[in-house]
Amino acid sequence: MPVLVLVTIALWIGALDKLYQLALAPDDRPLRAVAGCLACLAVVPVLNFAPVVAFLDGFGGGVARLLVNLMTMYASYWMLAFFQYSMRVSRRFQTVVFVGVLGLVVGVWLAAPVAIRLQPAALSSGDDWHSTVFVVAAVGYMAYALGLALRWAVRYARVARRVELRRGLRAIAVGLAFLIAGCVCKCFVALLQALAAVVWEAGNLAYVGFVLVGSVLLVVGVMYPAVTGMLAAVPVWRWHRRAYRDMEPLWRALHEAFPDLALRSETLPWWRDPIRIRRTHRDYYRRAVEIRDGLVQLGPYYPANAGGDAPVREADQSGEADHAHAVRAALAAKASGAPAGAPHPAPVAGGDDLDSDVRWLVRLSLSLA
């Protein structure tokens, strides 16, 4: 189904994104829980591929189906853990509950006949009590854990100040509601078949639909704040990249005058910054600081009337020619070996924040070039 393919792709994108973030911040426990949840959900479709099923069932009939159910249980556990980590509450009781239910599910599966192990949650296996206990325990735990997570998601969505985070939490809450509805349907189908010998196929189809829609909304909710933040950061990244290039003439002239101007930089492996976003921001700030350091070191060579005492508003470009002339004269004096005189203030313009100061440095660099 095209929808399943899209869901699988979305799950893998979300899981890889969170795993990459976790590699950058391995001590972030809420991020670890989100990454674990998405990774478990992303593995589930892979476990349903025929070659993977054949390989896993080589270790024992039905191992692939068991792992599918265990991964969904783990995903529910990690989703609840995310909110518990965020609230800094003890997770001991929930861990004991999860381990107990996990042991029950595996034990019932091991005790079931071979035919039930192959399809423990299928309607064809619903007449066997092993299948009923397996479904009620596994899916019932999912409904329990997701219900607690839904309560926290609704509470967070009400108090979140960031619009992106609030919208993401709302999508997560709706997705959790769909998943819980699906779990309730599946448990009801299993109990109805076991107690009344009634096979409710429509309920089973509703379970599949609820899980599909809930998984999509869950991924959308988790990824929404990150994606919107990345889109909002694109103009900033483009400005930092352009400003970095435009400041090069001024930076190069100062670096030739003062070779020890360059600051030490941390060399990161390529996988820590695969598309050079963080490196662009780091190089932008580093170049601005190095230029400012160079302008200060030129202090003994500035002309006496360099005009560096009075800041100039960013919109006022009347003094830029004078500043460029002062920097050019100081560089020439330093290059000619002229004796250093009394230090004069470095040219100052722009605003009080770094970005407005960099905009002036860009104009000064272009004027100097």
Rank of each mutant, 00 (worst) to 15 (best):
R91G: 14
R92A: 15
R92N: 06
R92C: 04
Q94T: 05
V96M: 10
V96E: 03
V97S: 00
V97T: 04
V99I: 14
V99H: 00
G100L: 11
V101I: 15
L104N: 01
L104D: 00
L104F: 01
V106R: 02
V106S: 03
V108N: 01
W109T: 06
W109V: 06
L110D: 00
A112Q: 02
P113Y: 03
V114H: 06
V114P: 00
A115D: 13
I116W: 02
I116R: 03
I116L: 02
I116F: 01
R117K: 15
R117N: 01
L118P: 00
A121S: 15
A121E: 14
A121W: 06
A121P: 04
L123E: 11
L123M: 12
L123C: 02
L123F: 00
S125G: 08
G126H: 09
G126N: 09
D127S: 11
D128A: 10
H130T: 04
H130S: 10
H130D: 02
T132F: 10
V133G: 05
V133D: 06
F134D: 09
V136S: 07
A137Y: 04
A137D: 07
A137F: 02
A138Y: 01
A138G: 01
V139E: 15
A143F: 05
Y144Q: 07
L148Y: 11
A149H: 08
A149C: 05
L150H: 13
L150W: 12
R151Q: 11
A153G: 03
V154H: 10
Y156F: 15
A157K: 09
R158D: 10
V159C: 08
A160V: 12
R161V: 15
R162V: 10
V163S: 13
V163G: 01
V163M: 11
V163E: 14
E164A: 15
L169T: 06
L169W: 12
L169V: 05
R170M: 09
R170L: 13
A171I: 00
A171H: 10
I172L: 14
I172F: 02
I172R: 03
A173Q: 08
